[in-house]
Simulated assay, not measured.
Amino acid sequence: MATVRVQQAAFDVGGELAALTAAGGGAIGGIGCFVGLVRADPDAHGRALQALTLEHYPGMTETAIAGIAAAAEQRFRLLGCTVLHRIGRLPVGEGIVLVLTAAPHRAAAIDATAFLIDWLKTRAPFWKRQDYADGSSEWVEARTADDAVAARWDLA
């Protein structure tokens, strides 16, 4: 059973990893891990990013992520997975998403981690606003490049 949380608080990677490992018992042969951070890339106009602000619809977002996690558990025969996504205002350098997957073998854990992050990026209902150091802000539009990356999972 997947652990899915949408939260404002920072996450503890070590604590979450320990919980997933304990739940899997001795059958786990590999764990995949992805930690996404708010990065400081300047935009096309040279504005420095100060923070991302993430919004969501409570209930709907968790349900969507749980469905994505269930698809990963079935597709890759996972022994467990953890998906944590933060909301609210997150300054540059803060953790935004944590994906952990546990499988009998490393390949399944690694592939499941990539699948989850690709699908979260394109199918989880979040709205992101970029807040710049000059006080301006703008909403992030969906990118076709992200859809193209996620589409690879539709073929398998």
Rank of each mutant, 00 (worst) to 15 (best):
Ala2Met: 09
Val4Tyr: 06
Arg5Pro: 04
Val6Met: 11
Ala9Met: 03
Ala10Trp: 03
Ala10Met: 03
Phe11Met: 05
Phe11Ser: 06
Val13Lys: 10
Gly14Leu: 08
Gly15Gln: 13
Gly15Cys: 08
Glu16Asp: 10
Ala18Ser: 14
Ala18Gln: 14
Ala19Arg: 15
Leu20Ile: 07
Ala22Ile: 04
Ala23Leu: 04
Ala23Arg: 03
Gly26Leu: 10
Ala27Pro: 07
Gly29Phe: 12
Gly32Asn: 05
Cys33Glu: 10
Gly36Leu: 09
Gly36Pro: 11
Val38Pro: 05
Ala44Ser: 12
Arg47Leu: 04
Ala48Pro: 03
Leu49Ala: 06
Gln50Thr: 00
Gln50Arg: 06
Ala51Asp: 00
Leu54Arg: 00
Leu54Gly: 00
Tyr57Val: 09
Met60Lys: 04
Ala64Val: 15
Ala64Met: 13
Ile65Pro: 01
Ile68Arg: 03
Ala69Glu: 12
Ala71Glu: 15
Glu73Gly: 07
Gln74Leu: 08
Phe76Gln: 08
Phe76Lys: 12
Phe76Ser: 12
Arg77Val: 04
Arg77Gly: 13
Leu78Trp: 09
Leu79Cys: 11
Leu79Val: 10
Gly80Tyr: 14
Thr82Leu: 05
Thr82Ile: 13
Val83Asn: 12
Leu84Trp: 07
Leu84Thr: 10
Leu84Pro: 04
Leu84Asn: 04
Arg86Lys: 14
Arg86Thr: 13
Gly88Ala: 10
Arg89Asn: 01
Leu90Tyr: 01
Leu98Gly: 10
Leu98Tyr: 04
Val99Cys: 14
Val99Lys: 11
Leu100Val: 02
Leu100Met: 02
Thr101Val: 08
Pro104Arg: 15
Pro104Leu: 01
His105Cys: 02
Arg106Asn: 02
Ile110Cys: 08
Ile110Glu: 15
Ala112Leu: 02
Ala112Asn: 10
Ala112Met: 07
Thr113Gly: 05
Phe115Cys: 05
Asp118His: 08
Trp119Arg: 15
Leu120Gln: 07
Arg123Lys: 13
Arg123Glu: 15
Ala124Asn: 01
Pro125Tyr: 01
Phe126Ser: 13
Phe126Trp: 12
Lys128Asn: 07
Arg129Asn: 00
Gln130Lys: 01
Tyr132Arg: 03
Asp134Asn: 05
Asp134Phe: 02
Asp134Ser: 05
Gly135His: 09
Gly135Glu: 14
Ser136Ile: 01
Glu138Phe: 00
Trp139Met: 00
Val140Asn: 02
Arg143Phe: 00
Thr144Asp: 15
Asp146Lys: 02
Ala150Leu: 06
Trp153Arg: 01
Asp154Leu: 09
Leu155Thr: 14
Leu155Tyr: 04
Ala156Ile: 13
Ala156Asp: 14
